[in-house]
Amino acid sequence: MATAGMHHLRRRDVVHYADIEPRSNAFVGWERVRHRQAHWFVECAAEFMGVFFYVYAGVGSTANFLLGGAAGIAGLSSMFQIGAAYAFGILFALIVCAPTSGGHFNPVITVCLTLLGKFPAKKAPRYIAAQILGSYVACLLIYVQWYDYIKEVTEVLEASGKLEAVMFTPNGPAGVFALYAPTGVSLGRIFLNEFVCDFLIGLVIFASVDPTNFGATPATGPWIIAFAYATMVWGYATVGIATNAARDVGARLMALTIWGLPAGGGSYAAIAALTNFPATICAMLFYTYVLSDSSRTVTPAWVDYFAAHLAHAEHSQESHGRVGPHNVAAADNDSVRSKASHQQVESV
C-alpha cells in the first residue's frame, strides 16, 4: 500500500504512549535526537539485534547438539530443538526489533523491498552491514561461552588424529558456527536443496505480509514466518541449507577470525551465501505476479496496523519539530512506507 493512500485511511481514535506516560526531559531530548539525527542508528541497531537474536538462539542450540555429542554428554539437544531454537529466535527478533527497523533481518529481504520500491536504496548498505555484524558478534559470543567445550573436543580430535578431517565439516567444532558441505553430497544437489527451501520460505514471508491475506494478520505473521524456517531446518538441514546471507556470512567471518583461511568453506561458501538471493527474488516475483491480487480487500487488522504506523509517524514528526502532519509523506516518505507496509518482513 502506498504511503499517500495511507493518509486516506479511516482511523479510530489513537492514544499515544506519550499521552499517558510522563516522560523526563532527558528522555524527551533523546527522542528528539532519535527522530531527527539518529534514526538511522536506532534502525541499524534493531537490525543488528534482530539477527543477533536468531543466530544466538539457533547456533547456541547447534553448539549443544554437536559439542555435547562430541563430548559424550547425552540428551543435550536434537535436530528438532535446533529448528525450534531458530524459530523462537526469529519470533523474538520480530517482536522485539521489527517495530523499530521494519524487521528485514536478511540482506535479500532488504534487496527485495528495494527492488519493489518499498525501501530506499541509500539505506540498504547500512542495513545489510548491521545484519552481518549481528551474526558475527552473536557467533563470537557463543564461541566464548562454549570455549571450554570447544577446546576439549578439539583436543580429543587432535589426539585421535581426526582433527584435520573433521574440523571444517558440519560435525566439527568450526561447523557449529560456519556452514560446510556435508560429506558425500554433491554441490549441485546442495544448491537445489538450498534454492527450493529458500523459495518456499520466501513465499511464506510475502504471503504473511500481504495485507489482503485473511489467514495472516500482523499478530500471527511472525509465528508463520518463524515456523516456515523451522520446517526447513527439520526436513532439509542435513542436506545443507543456510537460508540467510547474514547468518552465513557473519558466521563465516567469525570462523575465519578464529581459525584462519582453512575455515573458508571452499566452493560451498558461495552457495550458502548467495543462493537465497535468486531464490527469494523468484519467490517475490511469483507471489507478486501470480498469487497476489490488488482487487482484494485489505483486512481490518491490517487497516488498523497501517493507521497506527501513520499516526506514529505524524506524532513523532510533530513532537520533535520536523514537519506538520500535512507534510509527513514528503518529509519521511521512505521511512513511513518501509515500516508501515512491511514491518514483519523477515527471513533467516
Rank of each mutant, 00 (worst) to 15 (best):
A93R: 03
V96K: 00
V96A: 09
A98H: 03
P99H: 05
P99W: 02
T100S: 05
S101M: 09
G103F: 10
H104I: 05
N106L: 12
P107F: 07
V108L: 09
T110Q: 08
T110C: 06
V111C: 13
T114D: 03
L115T: 13
L116T: 09
F119M: 14
P120F: 10
K122R: 15
K122W: 15
K123C: 09
K123W: 15
A124T: 15
Y127V: 14
A130E: 06
Q131G: 11
Q131R: 12
I132W: 10
G134E: 10
I142G: 06
V144Y: 11
V144C: 01
Q145F: 13
Q145I: 11
W146M: 04
Y147T: 00
Y149L: 06
I150L: 13
K151P: 00
V153D: 02
V153W: 05
E155A: 10
E158V: 00
A159T: 04
A159I: 01
G161K: 01
G161E: 08
K162H: 01
V166S: 01
M167N: 01
P170S: 08
P170V: 05
N171V: 08
N171E: 09
G175S: 08
G175N: 06
G175C: 05
G175E: 09
V176H: 04
F177Y: 14
A181D: 04
A181R: 14
A181L: 06
P182T: 11
T183V: 13
T183P: 01
G188Q: 08
G188E: 13
R189D: 13
I190N: 07
L192T: 12
E194V: 12
V196L: 14
C197S: 14
F199H: 09
L200G: 03
